[in-house]
Design a binder for these strands. Structure first.
Length: 269
DNA sequence: ACCGCTGTTCTCCG
DNA sequence: TCGGAGAACAGCGG
């Protein structure tokens, strides 16, 4: 579930499910999810805590436990949160389980184990502080983007993937934003003109908002859900005709990750 | 059965 | 400091 829209949907659901509610107990089934933090300390913190708020920074969920502190969770490549009745079986890849009142339980599930469920300690706090601007925040303006871009020498694809610059974009929405802006993924970041920068800003906002809207509309369905079709413009569409100019979509590798783009309307300059 | 992918992020190196 | 390569993990399809 990982990019910003999926995390934001999860945040909204958790807000409804958890805020004002007490965590009766917690179990850690896989301590790797804690990334070296103390299991007993996490459990002591969670047990009896009331969730006061649910926030988000980039792709991190921030759980406010009032005076108990905060939890930061990250879905990695395959994480999700699953609510079940106490007597229902949990998915096999459940890593952390929270037992709630009224016979409910919430599991942090993560098949590939690249995600994290941690107390916000000094280390985590430092990482969160290092995150860049939220692309849906009002402070993310074209001029802010222009400022971030200036002087950067790396390819624009890599720039947009860097969470310390802009926090929340991943491989899919980077490809989608670049397509919407008509920009080739290999363009040097610092070389964008003012109008290209504006187009990119708009492309980022539009692709995120559109995914948010769609996912909100049909209650969380994503690529991995069977029967759900690819709803993106270029992502995963190698060989298909570009929706704008009908040129075949291509795929290129950058930093070990694939990028889908249209060679017809995404100019290299 | 092996290889090469997969929505992320670290660390290490030059 | 900056940017690229490879690592961490597990599973699936060709």
């Amino acid at each position: 579930m990982p990019e910003l829209p999926e995390v934001e949907i999860a945040r909204r659901n958790l807000e409804r499910w958890l805020v004002g509610r007490r965590i009766l107990n917690a179990r850690v089934l896989d301590r790797l999810a804690l990334r070296g933090q103390s299991v007993s300390r996490l459990i002591r913190t969670l047990r009896g805590a009331t969730v006061r708020g649910m926030g988000r920074r980039g792709k991190h969920l921030i759980w406010d436990l009032g005076g108990r502190g905060r939890i930061a969770s990250h879905f990695g490549m395959s994480g999700k949160l699953v609510m079940r009745s106490a007597n229902e079986a949990l998915p096999g890849a459940s890593r952390v389980v929270l037992h709630l009142a009224r016979g409910r339980k919430l599991a942090f599930v993560d098949v590939r184990r690249l995600g994290a469920f941690q107390l916000v300690d000094e280390m985590v706090e430092k990482k969160l502080r290092g995150l860049g601007v939220g692309p849906l925040e009002p402070s993310f303006t074209p001029s802010r983007l222009s400022h971030l871009l200036s002087g950067a020498r790396l390819p624009i694809k890599s720039f947009l993937m860097d969470q310390r610059r802009i926090a929340g974009l991943g491989n899919i929405h980077v490809a989608e934003a670049l397509f919407r802006a008509g920009l080739h993924p290999a363009l040097e970041s610092g070389s964008l003109s003012e109008s290209e920068t504006r187009a990119l800003h708009r492309g980022i906002r539009d692709t995120l908002n559109e995914t948010l809207r769609k996912e909100n509309a049909d209650e969380m369905r994503y690529l991995q859900e069977s029967g759900s079709e690819n709803r993106f413009l270029v992502y995963g569409r190698k060989g298909e005709p570009c929706p704008r100019c009908a040129t075949r979509i291509e795929r290129m590798m950058q930093g070990g990750r694939s990028t889908f783009y249209c060679p017809g309307c995404q100019a290299t300059k």
